[in-house]
Structure formats: structure tokens, C-alpha cells
């Protein structure tokens, strides 16, 4: 299990935070769209966008207060589990920001979220395999 995400509230998720895409364009975090991530990965060269499907969501056994998210990642359908705070937002293809606790996400970041569910396909990144 990957160590928990930092529990301090990352400011790049704060509503109004300015995000720089690989194209150089600047957008607010709440205005990002799926295409922005896909395009940025294409331009960045070294990174690849993966589709990570949420397979299971349950309270973390090791870290009370966090949730364990079980993903299958990329073409190989690798199994990856991460522990995150319930308010941590994930970008779901075609849907936008989603979290296990949209109320807490709105309270802490001001970011409006959908409810993350099993079966949601999240944007994740990995290193581009050298050809």
C-alpha cells in the first residue's frame, strides 16, 4: 500500500488555484477538463495518462481516518492500492473532480465534487515507457 497522501491540505486543490498545463496555458483547478490532462501528457513527452478504475473503497485498516482505494491501472490492469484522506479529489474521465466525501472537499477546498464510486475511471499518470 502506497503511503498516505499528505494530510495537510494541498493548496493546488483550493478553488481558484492556478494550474499550468504542459502547453503553457493557465487554468483554474475547477475549470479543468479531461482533455487538458490528455493534451498535457501528450505534450510533456515523459508522462503517460493511464485510466485507473476504482475497484473498491473501504476504510483504511492501517491508517484510521483515511480510506483505502483499490485501483486497476492501465493496459496491464495492475493492482494498486493507495490510502488517502476521504476529501482527496480525483479527476474522473468525462465527469470531473470526485471524492469519497464531497462535503468535506467542498468545506476544505471549496471545490465542488461528485461522489467517487466503484467503477469510476480516474486520470492517473505514469512514466512513458522508453521505446
Amino acid at each position: 500500500v502506497t503511503p498516505a497522501a499528505p494530510t495537510n491540505n494541498p493548496s493546488h486543490f483550493m478553488k481558484g488555484a492556478i494550474i499550468q498545463l504542459a502547453t503553457g496555458e493557465l487554468k483554474r483547478v475547477e475549470d479543468l477538463q479531461t482533455q487538458d490532462f490528455v493534451r498535457s501528457a501528450e505534450v510533456s513527452g515523459g508522462l503517460k495518462i493511464d485510466s485507473s478504475m476504482v475497484m473498491d473503497i473501504r476504510p483504511s485498516q492501517q491508517r484510521p481516518g483515511l480510506v483505502s482505494l483499490h485501483f486497476t491501472v492501465g493496459e496491464q490492469q495492475s493492482k494498486v492500492t493507495i490510502d488517502v484522506p476521504p476529501e482527496h479529489p480525483f479527476f474522473v474521465f468525462g465527469q470531473g473532480w470526485s471524492s469519497c466525501s464531497p462535503e468535506r472537499t467542498a468545506q476544505l477546498y471549496g471545490l465542488t465534487c461528485h461522489h467517487l464510486q466503484v467503477g469510476d475511471m480516474c486520470v492517473s499518470i505514469t512514466l512513458q515507457q522508453q521505446q
Partner: peptide
């Protein structure tokens, strides 16, 4: 004179998880 306030700008890849698909388990 008002000091220009610098606005932090974050890179796009800081927003999405790095789930290295070579990981497993």
C-alpha cells in the same frame, strides 16, 4: 506602493495520482 502579490502556479501533474502501473499489490 503596493507590493505585487505573486500568485502561486501549480503544474498540472501535481493534481493527479502517480500510479505506476508496474506496481502491484
Amino acid at each position: 506602493n503596493v507590493e505585487p502579490r505573486s500568485v502561486p502556479v501549480f503544474p498540472w501533474h501535481s493534481l493527479v495520482p502517480f500510479l505506476d502501473s508496474s506496481q502491484s499489490g
